[in-house]
């Protein structure tokens, strides 16, 4: 496997270092050739930077990609936004040689060159395509049989598809495949592909952001979902933090929000605290307790056998 740099992004390192923790734990456990490299900046975040200055968006992303190009590494990120933004610019520059030349003229003055040779992947498709379901299954100590999981893909894991090219952009399957490989049931639900709506919090529309979170959480609650699983810090903020804020005001959902790396870590035998799950705003204990209770149940054959072998009392 080719060496790859991890692009942590601003949100994880600023707000959720425990996501970095669980990501490092699973990367180490799989003995994957990941590297930390100097020189990254913000990816940059599209809704802030691209809306104000497209040129700044392009040169910043191109410079970040140039850093991995130079080292001949690939890039993997546990943040959907980062990968999507970097890949969007990579795609734009590859399709537009004139623009690429303009960008490289600027980059040359700081000693860089954008080539666009490195593969840019989000962690979930990376685990699906590069690590593989088979290797993941071999690492599982205790699976999630009997647990009902609502996956939230996160728009930018799979879109824009022309830049990311990793799954069906409207009916993706890879995250589902990974969750099924861990033994859990991936629920199919109406709002599964709905955007989290966290962007509304960034334009001073907090109540509307809560409204978007509420729609999905309500449906998951009605379906008896044990946890929402996702792999995007922005979506995590929306469903963990904003759910917590709504619960404080008396709206009860009780849907733990679990990062993909945390779920994987649990299956591999790590404790919730080792993975930093005690740092979530919404308590993950009900999920862990139910999971533990299920795994201490006697084998299903035994219960049937007991019934069949019971003394006749007619």
């Amino acid at each position: 496997m080719k060496e790859f740099a991890v692009f942590w992004g601003c949100t994880i390192q600023t707000r959720f270092p425990f996501i970095e923790k669980s990501t490092r734990i699973v990367l180490e456990s799989f003995k994957l050739p990941y590297r930390d490299i100097d020189g990254f900046t913000c990816c940059p975040e599209k809704s802030l930077v691209n809306n104000i200055d497209h040129g700044a968006f392009v040169v910043t992303a191109a410079r970040n990609v140039a850093l991995v190009d130079e080292l001949d590494y690939d890039l993997v990120s546990p943040c959907t936004g980062c990968v999507s933004n970097l890949a969007t610019v990579k795609g734009e520059l590859k399709a537009n040689p004139r623009e690429k030349a303009e960008v490289n003229k600027l980059l040359k003055e700081v000693g860089r060159e954008f080539k666009g040779t490195s593969k840019l992947q989000h962690l979930v498709p990376f685990f699906h395509d590069t690590v593989g379901v088979h290797a993941i299954k071999q690492k599982i100590k205790k699976d999630f049989s009997g647990m009902r999981i609502g996956i939230h893909y996160g728009c930018h894991m799979i879109r824009p598809s022309h830049a990311l090219r990793n799954d069906d952009p409207l009916e993706p399957k890879k995250f589902d495949t990974l969750i099924s490989a861990l033994g859990a049931q991936s629920l199919q639900f109406m709002t599964k592909m709905m955007c989290c709506g966290q962007g509304l919090d960034r334009i001073d529309e907090h109540d509307r952001a809560l409204h978007f979170a509420r729609i999905k959480l309500k449906e998951l609650k009605s379906l008896g979902c044990d946890a929402m699983v996702l792999c995007c810090p922005s979506c995590f903020l929306q469903f963990d933090n904003n759910q917590f804020l709504m619960e404080k005001e008396g709206e009860k959902f009780g849907i733990p929000v679990i990062y993909f790396t945390e779920l994987l870590g649990l299956a591999m035998g790590y404790k919730p605290e080792e993975l930093g799950m005690d740092l979530h705003r919404v308590d993950c204990t009900p999920f862990v307790k139910k999971w533990e209770a299920l795994s201490t149940r006697p084998p299903r054959e035994d219960a049937i056998e007991d019934g069949l072998n019971a003394p006749v009392d007619l």
Binding site: C10, T11, Q13, T14, R15, P17, F18, E20, K21, R24, D36, I37, D38, G39, F40, T41, C42, E45, L48, T60, R63, N64, L67, G276
Partner: peptide, 24 residues
């Protein structure tokens, strides 16, 4: 060049390595 700086005390508590130099 970023939208926030790495949370150093929390990193230490979690046993995370020093963050790499930014390209600011």
């Amino acid at each position: 060049s970023r939208l926030g700086e790495p949370a150093l005390p929390a990193r230490k508590k979690l046993g995370l390595p020093e963050p790499k130099a930014s390209g600011a």
